[in-house]
Design a protein around this nucleic acid. Structure first.
Lengths: 214, 214
DNA sequence: CGATATGTTGAAAGGTCTCAAGGGACGTGG
DNA sequence: CCACGTCCCTTGAGACCTTTCAACATATCG
């Protein structure tokens, strides 16, 4: 985000912001709590989720640096934001950022683009949640993660560590952990991936994985 | 949208726009087609949907007047926009609207707010798609429609006509039409709603309907 | 009135969840 | 270094829910 600012604005911002570190699992913003500040994500992954009264949970988005975390202009946060890995953020008071947005067209455009991109991603995921089978859902998530974590790689292979637990994946896909686990086993049996130490994934055939995405 | 414009801007706009009517079912923008213009929705309901290669469809949003239809700043539309009822729009060329946005802070804020609201709605719906049962999904949709179409009504009752077919509802909820139909029958049998002529709904107990939303 | 599209209902198949048991990695303490 | 507990993950069996396929009912429209 700071890329969109000029030196004066950076100075102004630095007087109002604090650098904060959050260990994995810590909550940045709670669902239905008042929004007093936004968090400029510097490092790590943030998980956005919503929970039904009886505890059923759905992950509704992931954010990566340099996203801005926090629902702009809302009095209350519509969801929980939680550190999915160890995370480093710049916390900006609401009023400071909102004033800055008024003055700075580049920053404004950048945040507008982020919102529109998040909207595209949410709608893509709605198709996955509403219309894909468990096998297709798991394949889709692996492909999504692979393209985020190993974006430069060419060819048929991809190697990466899953940045989330089976429970997180289940909550992202609208499944149970058992179903996710079974689908991983199937992908392994069919020679499409190998798994070591639960989290380390090697995709052997990207084409076959893509074919399973529906 | 025009509420955010001054007289000069309205004159400018009127020279560049055309009023267009679309009968129900007509496509405004096709998935993966070039975006040449935006549509300012004056009357009616527009359905946004995405389709998998094998034909499975998911509705990812509904738009009502006075929303702007069309993905801002994108070269290609990420989804299909289709008239869900008879619809009247003001078609604005891309460049015209984008220039106007640069100059007019009120318009800019209005479109930003629309994007953020659509993002909230999409994420709410992700919870419905991923974590609710068929019964809860149908109840949630009825409640959503009731609050849109009969927003002023007080008390336990709501009366309205469904603005969509069973197939549309199924595509919105990630279900089949048969499952939707069965859930309607159950709501009828349990005395929560009555249905006449397939589309005319009377909600007898809003509280009971809400209790079924999960 | 017939033709067509839309909606409902039933029975069986299939997929996902639930419940239960067991396996493997990791950290702590003996 | 090993024993043990804990957490996370995997696997199996049966229950449950949704889909599929088929038949029928109802609404719409010429």
């Amino acid at each position: 985000m700071c890329g969109a600012l000029n030196p004066d604005e950076l100075t102004l911002l630095s007087r109002h912001t604090r650098q904060i570190e959050h260990p994995s699992g810590e909550e940045l913003v709670g669902e239905s709590t008042r929004v007093e500040a936004y968090d400029n994500l510097m490092r790590g992954v943030v998980k956005l989720s919503k929970t039904l009264e009886d505890g059923r949970q759905q992950i509704v988005g992931l954010q990566f640096a340099p996203d801005l975390v926090g629902r702009l202009y809302a009095g209350e946060s519509p969801m929980t934001a939680e550190a999915a890995s160890d995370v480093e953020v710049c916390r900006v008071p609401r009023a400071t950022l909102e004033r800055l947005i008024e003055r700075n067209p580049a920053l404004r455009k950048r945040l507008m683009d982020q919102s529109l991109r998040e909207l595209d991603e949410a709608r893509d995921w709605m198709v996955t949640l509403g219309r894909k089978t468990a096998a297709e859902k798991v394949a889709s998530l692996l492909l999504l993660i692979a393209s985020h974590l190993d974006p430069e790689a060419a060819g048929e292979r991809r190697i990466f560590d899953l940045p989330m637990s089976r429970l997180d994946m289940a909550d992202y896909l609208g499944l149970t952990i058992e179903t996710v686990s079974r689908q991983f086993s199937r992908l392994k049996k069919d020679g499409i991936i190998t798994i070591t130490a639960n989290r380390h994934i090697e995709v052997l055939s990207l084409a076959k994985l893509q074919a399973r995405c529906g």
